[in-house]
Amino acid sequence: MPLPSARPAAALSVQSMLPALVVPWLAACDGPQSILDPAGPAARGVTLLWWPMLIVATVVLVGVTAAWIVAMLRRPRDFSPEEAKRISRRWVVSGGILLPAASIVLLLGFGVPVGDRMLPRRGEAPLRIDVTARQWQWDVAYPGDGVVLVDELHLPAGRAVHIHVTSADVIHSFWVPRLGPKIDAVPGRTNVLRLQADEAGSLRGQCSEFCGTGHAHMVLKVHVHTEAGFSAWLTERAAAAHVGGKDPAGATPGGALPAPAAPGAARNPPRLVSGVAFLP
């Protein structure tokens, strides 16, 4: 279920042109968990880094392979041994030392800012969501609202969300590929991941650190609402939780949320998904 495109124009042009240019097969890497089909800024940053790297790597590989073929097939004019040695040495120094060294510097120039974009920032008021992984399910809690879901994550679009990830047993890894990078759920630690979704829609996450028998089926359904839809949904769920005996504890998370309930957002109570809910 790809989201309708709402990417910035620059990103759109790069991402729509490059697949056609490079390897048509990569277009087949589509689908609800595709890294190459970002639905949020963090994931988009990675794809913007990935495509140039792929192109450069491919060009260099083709170039180097061509050099080998020439080296193997061509019987050029005779060089004196000294000349041949000098030419060879020039190749080893330029191809073996300068080329990788230059690539590394270039890569770091691009890589560092992208990595930086994934980190939590000071001074923003993000929505906090606590995710506790356990064998083999995701417990998703909205602190302050008393709402606890299983295997289901609801987010507002266009707003930073801090996911506080921990584990109740072994190591798991929280990953919604189209939103952004993964973060391990480690027992005894709480890792924070900053995510933001572009648009309302449905996404799919999956545990990506091997965690035992149920690992393959540890899937997280992600629902991205509009800001209004999300607050309506949260209010409704919080009320239900309150009726159910829990204290909603007053405070709304993060910033102020519009109060009136918008229709349409997740009316069904979250299901406890224990087994296979596996088709995209």
Partner: peptide
């Protein structure tokens, strides 16, 4: 940043 996406 790329590793964090494709790790595992």
């Amino acid at each position: 940043p790329i590793d964090i996406q494709v790790q595992d």
